[in-house]
């Protein structure tokens, strides 16, 4: 009988970590300035140096790689959690409207901030507020007999998404030109503004969210059987779901506040991993974190090097890479799959 052992978990983590390190290395030596891989590695080993090479490696590529890794991991783990909570492999922060809520919060501050007297620096905070507010709203709207039904949660999410999109478009319409370009980049998902302090914010919430998800990974397995079965198998369902939703919306809020609406990471990474590793969340959660990070690092490397000195938004890459891949996988596995 196959079952999870510490050895198997270790092997999977090691392999995932290896993939992440390779992707980070590719990202480190690739970029529009055309410095050689050797020079880039040399600059990495001498952080105290100054000059353009040190700036490019230490103050441009490294913060951006770390931010991409943090955002990718956050979105992938959030996807795994939402899929288990809603027992739907197609659930995702975007479908639920949590990303949309975060974006609406952030964009409100970008557009209205000068009128109500707060700077653009408050955008990340507003994004957290938006994500948590959306989650609370979903919970409040969908609660029946003190429990949350997945169907109602999804439906409420769909409706809220429509509301958030309308709000974002409304704000974009009243915004000026420069703010318009910023909103556009938020909507498509973009990491070009990477700064170390952003990485720290994302990292802190990732650590919290990942810690919660790992410690409740067994509970996520039970939730896949349904709330009732999970309760009958000894899980404090409502309490753990609340903790999971809170942790997830914090991760999503942090990720959206620095990168905007990067799509597909939370959907595609857990899907791929489930096909390779199976659905056990004790494997899936940590592997999604590592490979979600690797995936977004790779996509962002493409985004910043494909057009030379001109930038592409990373969200366009993830959607272009993720969409077709997702369809192919869905099709190839439809015969032995889990029609849910």
């Amino acid at each position: 009988m196959k079952h999870l052992t510490a050895g198997r978990l270790g092997a999977v983590l090691l392999a995932s970590l290896g993939v992440l390190v390779v992707c980070l290395a590719i990202g480190l030596v690739t970029g529009p300035s055309g410095i050689s891989p050797g020079a880039a590695l040399d600059a990495l080993l001498h952080p105290a140096e100054s000059g353009a090479l040190a700036d490019i490696v230490w103050r441009i590529r490294v913060p951006r790689l770390l931010l991409a890794a943090g955002v990718g991991a956050s979105l992938a783990v959030a996807g795994v959690i939402f899929q288990a909570l809603l027992r739907n492999p197609l659930a995702d922060p975007f479908i639920l409207g949590v990303s949309g809520g975060a974006a609406l919060g952030g964009i409100s501050v970008l557009v209205l901030g000068t009128w109500i007297g707060v700077g653009a620096g408050a955008a990340p905070l507003a994004a957290f507020a938006g994500a948590i507010g959306t989650t609370l709203l979903l919970y409040g709207m969908a609660a029946v007999r003190g429990r949350v039904s997945a169907t109602q949660l999804l439906l409420t999410g769909v409706v809220f998404n429509a509301f958030a999109s309308a709000g974002i478009v409304f704000l974009a319409s009243i915004a000026g030109l420069a703010d318009g370009s910023r909103i556009f980049l938020w909507l498509i998902g973009n990491l070009s503004a990477a700064r170390t302090d952003m990485g720290i914010v994302v990292g802190v919430f990732l650590v919290v969210g990942l810690g919660v998800a790992l410690s409740l990974a067994r509970g996520l397995n039970l939730l896949a059987l349904g709330d009732e079965a999970a309760a009958q198998l000894g899980m404090a369902v409502e309490r753990q779901k609340k903790i999971l939703l809170l942790a997830t919306s914090l991760m999503v809020g942090a990720a959206v506040s620095v990168s905007g609406l990067v799509g597909f990471v939370g959907l595609i990474v857990p899907h791929l991993l489930r096909l390779v590793l199976g659905p056990d969340h004790r494997l899936l959660v940590p592997a999604s974190a590592l490979l979600g990070a690797a995936f977004l690092v790779l996509c962002d490397t493409l985004a910043r090097s494909l057009l030379g000195g001109r930038e592409l938004p990373v969200g366009a890459i993830t959607a272009l890479v993720g969409g077709p891949l997702f369809l192919v996988l869905l099709r190839r596995n439809s015969d032995r799959s889990f029609t849910a």
């Binding site: 079952h3 199976g278 659905p279």
Partner: peptide
């Protein structure tokens, strides 16, 4: 009803 392809052994171990 499981939305994910768990194995029989995994479900019994739950």
């Amino acid at each position: 009803h499981v939305p994910f392809p768990f194995r029989v052994g995994e479900v019994v171990l739950m």
